[in-house]
């Protein structure tokens, strides 16, 4: 199985299990492999048990529905009460969805300036800036802070290019020629 790693906002992978074990990641890292709906804390992977002090519940196997019947109850002959992992829940399990993976706020998408450049400047570079603004949000939500920051910068550079090529250079040129 191939694993992807997100350690302090930097993504890497895919690597196999042996390589993952040798990476010496801290318990702050998140891991994803095929079959998981979202990133999980490295401490929650059952296959890494022993390497990390387990925090929270290990994630359940896809088909496994664990039973939570205490032994005494079986000996007493009470019917087995089925409890799924989801019902037990875990207060330590991180909640995802709206919550971003990274503590730091999202780098600026620079969308305002991209829109302003698109509407006011004569070259369609602003459209490229909008595409990169979109990338900022996408990468940030995937936990890739480094990628998001670089997309943020790229977006700004396209906006600057639109302003320079579309607006600044012509009056400058006229001034130079007329002077």
């Amino acid at each position: 199985m191939q694993y992807w790693i997100n350690h302090k906002g930097v993504q890497s992978g895919p690597v196999d299990l042996d390589a993952l074990k040798e990476m010496g990641l801290t318990s702050a890292a998140y891991v994803w492999h095929e079959g998981l709906s979202d990133w999980v804390k490295i401490t929650q992977l059952p296959e890494l048990q022993g390497l990390y002090e387990m925090v929270g519940e290990p994630i359940p196997e896809p088909q496994a529905v664990t039973t939570g019947t205490p032994i005494e109850e079986i000996t007493q002959g009470t019917p087995i009460e089925e409890t799924t992992q989801a019902q037990i829940g875990s207060p330590l399990q991180p909640q995802y969805g709206e919550e971003p993976l990274i503590d730091e706020p999202c780098p600026s998408t620079n969308l305002v300036w991209a829109i302003v450049a698109t509407v006011l400047c004569c070259v369609p570079f602003g459209i490229v800036a909008i595409v990169y603004a979109n990338k900022v949000t996408k990468l940030y939500k995937a936990g890739d802070l480094y990628g998001a920051k670089s997309a943020s910068e790229t977006s700004m550079w396209w906006t600057i290019a639109a302003i320079v090529v579309g607006v600044v250079w012509r009056p400058l040129l006229y001034t130079l020629i007329c002077a």
Binding site: P105, C106, I115, I127, T137
Partner: peptide, 22 residues
């Protein structure tokens, strides 16, 4: 509001809204 309210920022800069504008 980017630093003060990151959730709001992400919602207003959602991929859907940016795609719509594009």
């Amino acid at each position: 509001q980017r630093v003060r309210n990151p959730k709001l920022y992400l919602r207003l800069n959602s991929q859907l809204l940016i795609w719509l504008f594009l």
